[in-house]
Amino acid sequence: MSEKKNNWPLWEVFIRSRQGLGHRHVGSLHAADAEMAIGNARDVYTRRQEGVSIWVVPAEEITASSPDDSEALYDPANDKVYRHPTFFDLPDEVNHM
């Protein structure tokens, strides 16, 4: 265990590629602290100007939904077709609604 303590923790990296877009998960890296994680993310994931803003999150702090629950979580939205605009038939005369 004591040896593991020297290993830098894993951070998940999210990058905003340009103003107006949301941050998107791009991968992970190792860093000793949050500041270093930002620096490393800059060096690793924005070498080709891929970003204007970075979020880093300790990987162990992320809570994810379980795939086992996916039917219960996502399938009930299947039959709510009226949430989509194509559900509604409009006269041809009505454009752009």
């Binding site: 190792h30 620096g39 490393n40 060096d43 690793v44």
Partner: peptide, 11 residues
């Protein structure tokens, strides 16, 4: 010392 630093020093 670690991959991340390799990339940083090269930058």
């Amino acid at each position: 010392p670690i991959l991340e630093e390799d990339i940083a020093l090269t930058n």
